[in-house]
Design a protein around this nucleic acid. Structure first.
Lengths: 337, 337
DNA sequence: GGATTATTTCAAAGCGCTTTGGATTTTTTT
DNA sequence: AAAAAAATCCAAAGCGCTTTGAAATAATCC
């Protein structure tokens, strides 16, 4: 790294003290407007670039957000979701002085460092958690409320921790109501695995929606699987074999919906004519799948943006009592239902 | 942040000097094995967590890699690519002591901070550049070779800068050769916009491949557009109107290929029977599009991994002369050609 | 056994910044 | 014009770590 100009340099240059220079640049009232201007001018001319780390050491504030997410390759489906949420996070923090830091640990690494260690040693000011599983060992630490934290899709509440979720219940209602309006009565549900906090919520949503439509809940046509295409494929095959007069399938993710459609087609049946399918997420390819996937859209960017906003507030206002934030969803009607 | 135990605490606790404690923990030979053990034991018991920032201030080394990428929402296609490359980067650095830092600046922000400022003020040790456009104002700075840098898909060479690229030429050859082997002679090319460095390379690859098959290059059936689905759609429509006896279209991205297929279908033509289509990238949905997209697969994760490895080497071995690295591609044969 | 060398420890300075507590100068008050 | 208040400025300490240069102790040599 090149030899950079520092505060002391511009102090000597101007025959001022280090203190004054620092204060001038930080717009303290104790320094007169004239010297303030002089300092700023000199700083610019000399190409002064403040050294964040030094600043943070002194202030005990890093302006760093630990962005915790996993990119385990199995569930590629999640990529698009994750990426868009992160885009939202970036977008919000782009207007602040915070940076994001990614500590490349792997969830699957059994003897990874503790979350607290990771955060403390880096002095991060906040933690943004994305797509954490209910069986992740970090969960215990998260619940300790040890650092301002916002999670996506994982319920977390405390003095300085909170979370963002889509309005999953509404999403389920939208899907089921739509199917019912099309005359469907036997609506199966393919849920994701039990290690995602949202799985339970979506199951609840499914039940509630059925109830509101006076359709009895039939556990026999609800099935849990992976959030992947293969998961949907397998689950759909099981459902189709059982053959409970199913005329529609609601899948808890678009990927599963795609797998479901594949299974249906292989049975010589047609979507949506024989069996209607609705997904969840509205990931990018939902539009491009054949037939176009009718699905519940989550506003991923918005989730990230609002999550970041919430986290920022928790950090900057120590007395702020955080509440969870729910992001609206909408039904995107295409051709699969 | 909680009051953390620091070196001086464990020094006092053990009646040792700060120096010795520091050296013990860093395994210096100057400290005897017994005290070393004692110090380490005490450190563990007292819950000592080293303060990275302080360390970095002292060492003038941050162990931070600036991860520079853009998530401009227009080109969602790029998301999958970007995400997977980043996964590769993460994976490599997961085995080192480096973290990744994202400075949430936006390319489109006209008066954003200079790249040098951003990097210097954060004291990052290296820069990983992803998907930068040829008209980006940062390009000038990058070429100055001011920091260890590795870019993806943008040619950069110097004492401490280099880049990673897919073997685009080979990719084009694979695609064209395959089409020729299927009897195609009139193969159109839909290229991406001119602000991506790879666009030129892929055009070259297309020409070379044609030549090798003794097919004259016809500029009339080569067309540039956006890397998006709409870009492909528009370009394909133009091509189809001209009607140059085209029997195959090679698109420089999967997204464009999808748009191309849409345009073809709208003309009442069938893929691959009337017109064959080959894409580039093998993004996630290529498999799910209808018909399944035959495409040139880029090993995105590997690009990230190798890029990270290269960058790491440039950083740690100051005398190392970096060379670009080319990552192999392969043709994924599905149903569209 | 005294001189030499190796081993182990430490006090202090430094990384680049902020902040405390005073000192100095200028302005206001009576 | 002297006293009080306000405005500017500064030296020094501190953030938590590493490293230099020297001192104290232990081990080796002839």
């Amino acid at each position: 790294m090149v030899d950079m100009v520092k505060l002391i340099d511009i102090a000597e240059n101007l025959n001022l003290s280090l203190t004054t220079v620092s204060r001038a640049l930080n717009d303290y009232s104790e320094v007169s407007p004239v010297t303030k201007a002089a300092v700023k001018k000199a700083a610019k001319e000399m190409g002064y670039i403040p050294h964040r780390m030094a600043k943070h050491l002194a202030l005990k504030k890093s302006h760093l957000i630990n962005l915790l997410y996993d990119d385990y390759s199995e569930s590629i489906s999640y990529q698009s979701f994750t990426f868009e949420v992160i885009a939202g996070v970036r977008s919000f923090f782009g207007n602040t002085s915070y940076d994001l830091i990614i500590v490349p640990e792997n969830t699957k690494n059994k003897n990874r460092e503790s979350l607290k260690n990771i955060c403390y040693s880096r002095g991060v000011d906040g933690l943004f958690v994305l797509g954490i599983r209910t069986d992740d060992s970090y969960i215990t630490e998260l619940k300790e409320d040890f650092l301002p934290t916002v999670a996506i899709d994982y319920p977390l509440s405390g003095k300085r921790i909170s979370y963002i979720e889509s309005d999953n219940i509404k999403g389920c209602k939208l899907a089921i109501n739509y199917l019912v309006s099309k005359g469907h009565k036997h609506i199966a549900f393919i849920n994701g695995h039990n290690f995602a906090a949202i799985s339970q919520v979506r199951l609840d949503g499914y039940k509630i929606a059925l109830k509101e439509n006076s359709i009895p809940y039939n556990p026999g046509i609800t099935i849990s699987s992976d959030y992947t295409k293969e998961g949907g494929y397998k689950a759909a095959n099981i459902l189709l074999k059982k053959n409970h007069h199913i005329t529609a399938i609601f899948a808890a993710s678009d990927l599963m919906a795609v797998g479901t459609i594949k299974a249906i087609n292989e049975q010589g049946l047609k979507v949506p004519d024989d069996i209607a399918v609705i997904g969840f997420d509205d990931v990018f390819f939902a539009e491009h799948s054949q037939p176009g996937l009718t699905t519940v859209r989550q506003h991923k960017f918005e989730m990230g943006y609002q999550g970041a906003k919430l986290l920022h507030r928790i950090i900057e206002q120590p007395d702020y009592i955080p509440k969870k934030k729910r992001i609206d969803v909408e039904l995107i009607i295409r051709d699969s239902a």
